[in-house]
Design a protein around this nucleic acid. Sequence first.
DNA 1: TGAATATTTCATGATGTCAAGTAAATCGGT
DNA 2: ACCGATTTACTTGACATCATGAAATATTCA
Lengths: 143, 143
Amino acid sequence: MATRTDTLTLEVVELIGTVVARYHEEYDRAAAEHSLTGAQARVLGLLSLEPLPMRKIAVRLKCEPSNVTGIIDRLETRGLVERRPDPADRRVKLAAATEKGRRTARELRDALDFAREPLAGLSDAERTVLRDLLRRMLGEETP
Amino acid sequence: MATRTDTLTLEVVELIGTVVARYHEEYDRAAAEHSLTGAQARVLGLLSLEPLPMRKIAVRLKCEPSNVTGIIDRLETRGLVERRPDPADRRVKLAAATEKGRRTARELRDALDFAREPLAGLSDAERTVLRDLLRRMLGEETP
DNA sequence: TGAATATTTCATGATGTCAAGTAAATCGGT
DNA sequence: ACCGATTTACTTGACATCATGAAATATTCA
């Protein structure tokens, strides 16, 4: 592969590493302000959009379902999430954000300036270019 | 801030989220192939470049020094890392990759195709643009 | 000598895996 | 349509890793 070790590629790889690190710092910082861990914040964010069965949360998180049990337990203890039965399947438990949970998720989103604030330094045209390059890098087609 | 909620910005933010997720998948997968955790692989990568005092590892990882003790313990048990005294300061212990550790780190690096392989779809000019946009996003100046 | 620094140990909690267990749905053969 | 076997969803328990914070030890520095 011709692109493996040239300086330019390595530079981009390194920059992406920095982006990843910066992203996590911001995310964990915002979560910690609400006394949440990164995993809890992530799940709360998912559930603020729609209730989900435990199993689907595990798929989204790419972890074992047994792990989700604990995360939901801790969010439920704090009144941010509740378990509901699924009327269509009695095996399933739906985890749903409470009103308090949705409020927290909204505050969390607003605090997540990581990619918004630094992006302000780029013009619209530049952001468009960046978007398209990232899309192609991720293997999506530009629609 | 004018850039907070426009569609373009949110798209870019989402793409960056995807990049972060993809990066971790690749990293953890590559680490797991050598029976290493993400944290262990990261530390081993650092130490394959140069020996470091425990304290500096903690700074790089942005965690408590007491945490590093355990990570180095586990790498040392597997013969990938060794602790050496610092001749200049007897309080300090230098963690250094062993020959086996350096070999593992090299294999790990070679397996880390995350950002290299997908980058192959971009031309040199595009990669240059991407590099410069990422740099500016991260607040570095283009030298 | 006294304060600061580097590391470790211990207690604790969150996250992750895996194996086993319970409950409910679904499938296949009669 | 029925019933036993399998699959699916979730929880529990045991265990490893990662992370923090407080306290202990050893060494350096002012």
